[in-house]
Design a protein around this nucleic acid. Sequence first.
DNA 1: CGATTAACTCAAATCATTTGAATATTCAAT
DNA 2: ATTGAATATTCAAATGATTTGAGTTAATCG
Lengths: 386, 386
Amino acid sequence: MVVIPFQQGTNAERSRHRNRQAVLGQVRAAGTMGRAEIARALSLTTQTVSNIIAELVADGMLVEKGRLSGGRGLPAIQYGLNPKGGYALGIEVRPDAVFAALLDMQGKPVSMERVALQGTRPDSVLAEVSGLYARALRQVSVAKDRMLGAGIVMPGPFGVTGISGMGSDLVGWQEVDAEHLFAEAVGLPVVLSNDANAGAMAERVNGVAQGIHSFAYLYFGAGLGLGMVHEGQLIGGAFGNAGEIGHVPVPGGKLEDALSRLSVQRHMAAAGKEVTGIDMLDQLFLQKDRDLMAWLESASTALGHALAIVENMFDPQTVILGGAMPDAVLDHLVTHAPLPQVSVSNRPEVLHPRLMRGASGRMTATLGAAALVLNRALTAPLSYAN
Amino acid sequence: MVVIPFQQGTNAERSRHRNRQAVLGQVRAAGTMGRAEIARALSLTTQTVSNIIAELVADGMLVEKGRLSGGRGLPAIQYGLNPKGGYALGIEVRPDAVFAALLDMQGKPVSMERVALQGTRPDSVLAEVSGLYARALRQVSVAKDRMLGAGIVMPGPFGVTGISGMGSDLVGWQEVDAEHLFAEAVGLPVVLSNDANAGAMAERVNGVAQGIHSFAYLYFGAGLGLGMVHEGQLIGGAFGNAGEIGHVPVPGGKLEDALSRLSVQRHMAAAGKEVTGIDMLDQLFLQKDRDLMAWLESASTALGHALAIVENMFDPQTVILGGAMPDAVLDHLVTHAPLPQVSVSNRPEVLHPRLMRGASGRMTATLGAAALVLNRALTAPLSYAN
DNA sequence: CGATTAACTCAAATCATTTGAATATTCAAT
DNA sequence: ATTGAATATTCAAATGATTTGAGTTAATCG
């Protein structure tokens, strides 16, 4: 494992980098902003912001958006992100296929591709990934130096042997430094994470969590995952495996026994119906299939438990539900899950609904992989002064 | 509510502050260090570290500790924290009393006092607090400008009405800005938190979590609380109420039904034994009281559930158990709790035991209140460069 | 004993932000 | 319609903090 320095000092160069990040992030969050406005938001002087903006405009990251006359005084020149100023690559590795997406700085996907995998051995996966990356660049004609980085999503958990038989661990990836390998394959800085974390970032960058800095994201993968975002940053845990909420015991068993894709499939199989894909679930839901509705009943209860756990432990602004389920099913769960009474989130006045459905659809994890990069590039973490 | 800026830019002054923090933190963690060593650890130049150290020595925060000859070359001058260089005030407000502790920069308590409360109205509490603070300063003859800040611990949760009947909410504090009031009363920067968070910091600053950057702390208060430390910083949640793990549903009911001080008291009362204090529990445990042992049996099971939740959701380096329980009882729980099989923490090789007993004893929360301040003063959060 | 290694210091250079002065534009009051 | 206050921006000089480079000191290795 790479030794992560626990503390780092800073200098002029790092300060500049941080301030650039902050300016970009601020502009992205607001759409368009003027120099003075940005300066106030970041506790910088207008001159500093002015210098940075000049640089960012020269680099093609920002573009002028005309003057906005509103209040008194000289109308501020508005600046907005230049979507073509930077791109992020998102890669999702599944046991049977690799997905790639290229997102512009705005968070909009500009290319997508899927390649089937023969095996999951590192060599072949890496070769496919380089190919996907090269094709994406060519297809959209993006210069390599416009790339901000690559986000990789793989089935976790990473580096643990205690949980086996999950069937999700990729063969051949146990003993390798995946992050390093991918970084070499694409020649970019790499962020490696799991599907739930990526999904959370997808919602933050482009979905319903825009402008929300602390939230939790419940993700239907094969099992059930959780992404936690605190002050704009993911909480990954000491070993990168935080959020494995599926394994958590609740009344009635493990959470993912009642609330996961495997759980529906098992339930429906017991009723003699083999569920092969998401579309089929969608069909069954439309038909109000009795067995599916029965499963939803118990799943809603389980979701209530999950909420009680997540809300009380993490106290987020909201909880978002997403992943490999039809939107209609997610919506049903969102409206039918019992919101726990005994919860710190049970407030008299609320700014956000306690539970929402995610907006990223089925490609959540792939888009989220790229969103991991965007979030890192556009967010300067808070530091505490005295 | 105070609007917390989500991002902030930085400048020369803030950089310096941050670097000072980082140097102090590094020295504290290592005991003694030389300039070049610190520079390497923080990715700064030796010259920068030299300048900062000169300043810190002049300010009385660091002291020279002689030369250490080990390898080749000029032996480095070692520097260590000057315990008297700074002090942190810790205040714990309980429904019936206020506790105050003064910690030096090393984390060692230099004064402690308890004052009984008539009522918990803000005026009277604040008056007692100012008094305690003034007496502590006089008693240890600490100059006011040596104070780094004050940490306040109060029963939470803060600003929630959904959970009532907990009996822990302080009367008269619902509608006031406690942080501001305390800051005015003592004339210091204030950190406000709950007992579990404070306890976690106590362990980090002076207990078994020294050198551990990501861990979780289970705290026996009236109920059961959880403090989560991630990369050296507390995770407070969006509204400051993260860690209310007691309310979480597990097989058999809410977690704190089986695992809390109230739970033992109820259990023992049902057996006709009124438990009035910790000492009495200690006695009963020594005598291997049958009813207490029965409670411990079920409490251990519950603790196993708690571990499964905390480990899988947060993936910490370790979980620490502490709070208002006799050490012997905590030890019993630590040894008897079933370590969950299905957990991301169930690793083949471990650096830290998965479950440990805290070392701060009964004054955990008060000491922790001050530790909150020390941690903030000595830890520069990581930022991510590209 | 000389070569090498490493820590430290001084002075000058560099980088980035801040300060101060000047200008442009709009709103609001007279 | 005119004037004054408020706000946004820019330019040039000043400031604050880190970095660079040369030089000194001290210990170990061969």
